[in-house]
Design a protein around this nucleic acid. Structure first.
Lengths: 339, 339
DNA sequence: CTGAAAGCGCTTACAG
DNA sequence: CTGAAAGCGCTTACAG
């Protein structure tokens, strides 16, 4: 049953129309002039026969592979699972398959994309570089293949889908300010592009809440637990240490929580911690971490749609999409100072 | 440059051989009789011209899509990231792409596989069902399409790759016994197939270490944090409560840790906790959790290789592969009783 | 033994 | 306006 492949010829035979016409009807060819009635008949036959176009034949003819590659960094950020999920959904809906490369590859290969491209199996790329950001992006640009940056940024022209980092961080700061915090630390990057956007949100948030910016509270740290630990040590060693910390992801937050524990600072009694990104890990930390929620699956979803537009040459949307936060998920790591 | 697709005809022209012969050389056709010298020439030309076979044309001709689908449950178990990663790697090496379905789909669709299959784009399935295990497996079986169960089991005949649950759990029990624990709890499933394998390991481990089995310490619980909390409450409420707990995954372990905290039981001073699976989450829990390490990427890798064998009809390997644990990763959640 | 030719299932330029 | 025919890049049964 599954072996009886129905082809376009079967549909043609069943309806007395030429295969070419069926194809045209299928693809809504505007140059086709045929009675609506005929179109209806063909459409009905397609459903009845259970005809599904063969993507290989289509791809061969159109010189398209029908698959996309997503290059992701080592999954140090749990955010990627949600992003990949959204991307997969969009790809499936649009008839593309997706190949995920680079996950946890030891030492990211800046030529990974080139290697995949030359394998003849991919029409375009979703790119989320990891450590070697600059080199990777340069390599992608050199390829000249359709590509969309996912949660990464090169310049305004290069297609990208990113989060509204600034708006999210402002929500976080406002939450902390409402709890009475006045001295807030920032653990993240002051150099990477997305880091500076978060830092901008941090500063604007403080200003908006009438709080003073203390540069000693801003720490440029690595995006892993060790980075969080180092950063937390730095700000918590200060005599007038912050009473709250913004962490740029869950790993950094986990590091901060660990240091707080070591220093005997109860969370949130003596120190509040809030994290960028919401996700399953936030709930597993101790205490569970308040975080900024974004529809991360949407990020992947929109990126794929944008990429497919690029590939098919449809009217391009804007070169950039920004995903707004949906709010905060308030858990046990933030509260008023009580000690 | 990327547009100048090199085809088999180019190779043929460059070497003065027919395209058919090039194809035969490429695929090591044993019926082909040609001088080794010619083969060498062709092979060299392939490299020089940078010829890469077009998988679409190949697929069209062979009636194969060149892609696989992996059906995964909602990613409640962090184990899946590693499994997917290994599967992707194998798929890429073998020239297949992979499509991941079902991640976090609301209410898993038992017909998801059928839907994907009818989309004409997949040669076979990697199956890791979630909640509706029985129904999903039945649906897959009905499909009749090549499929391999990943970390799931139906019967000895149906192709599967699973972990050596028993050996792993025995390692865990021995570790606890060596720390002096005599009363050990089991939080997992006593019904699901894999659960019973772990339970068997638990029992054998106790026997091997000369420990007595106390049935009250065995709790059938859900595989999420809430399940872990419920299970931990059940065993820790006992007057002669266990001094150590085996948890069937990290979420269950997280639940157990949370209950221990609520009850004022220090870990590992008053209670040790050990978890199945090692992974990034283990290190983020408080305290970081000792766990049983398996090469999970290998699980995905082997499953893809097995599936491709099934598809191509190559000499089938055994219907089942069992992946052995690589050992324990000892962290802060296990230790001798000190309180 | 080996090379030419058919055909996989589509799409679309082109002839009628 | 519309249908027949060519061709995308492979593989392999088949004729020579």
């Amino acid at each position: 049953m599954a072996d009886k492949r129905v082809t376009i010829a079967d549909v043609a035979k069943a309806t007395g129309v030429s295969p070419g016409a069926v194809s045209r009807i299928l693809n809504n060819d505007p140059t086709l002039n045929v009675r609506d009635e005929t179109k209806e008949t063909v459409r009905r036959a397609i459903v009845e026969l259970g005809y599904v176009p063969n993507p290989q034949a289509r791809g061969l003819r159109l010189a398209r592979s029908g698959s996309l590659a997503m290059i992701v960094p080592e999954i140090n950020s749990p955010a990627f699972v949600a992003i990949i999920q959204g991307a997969q959904r969009a790809a499936f809906e649009l008839g593309y398959s997706m190949l995920i490369g680079g996950i946890g590859e030891e030492g990211e290969d800046p030529n990974l994309a080139a290697r995949i491209l030359s394998s003849n199996r991919v029409d375009g790329f979703l790119i989320s570089t990891g450590k070697q950001e600059a080199r990777q992006l340069a390599a992608v640009q050199r390829l000249g293949a359709p590509a969309v940056l996912v949660n990464r940024y090169l310049n305004e022209q290069f297609p990208h889908v990113i989060l509204d980092d600034e708006a999210g961080v402002m929500l976080a700061i406002r939450h902390l300010a409402e709890l009475g915090h006045e001295r807030i630390g920032f653990l993240g990057s002051t150099r990477r592009f997305l880091g500076t956007r978060r830092l901008a949100g941090f500063k604007r948030g403080l200003t908006q809440c009438g709080l003073r910016l203390d540069k000693r509270f801003i720490v440029n740290c690595g995006y892993d637990r060790e980075g969080g630990e180092a950063g937390a040590h730095a700000v918590l060693a200060l005599a007038d240490r912050p009473t709250a910390i913004f962490a740029t992801n869950h790993l950094v937050a986990a590091g901060a929580l660990r240091v707080a524990r070591q220093l005997g600072l109860s969370v949130p009694g003596a120190l509040s911690v809030i994290s960028f990104y919401d996700g399953p890990v936030a709930d597993l930390l101790t205490p569970a971490v308040t975080s900024i929620a974004y529809p991360l699956d949407q990020l992947g979803y929109d990126a794929v749609r944008m990429l497919v537009r690029l590939i098919t040459g449809e009217t391009p949307t804007a070169a950039g999409i920004t995903i707004r936060p949906t709010g905060l998920v308030i858990r046990q790591s933030t509260g008023p100072i009580s000690e």
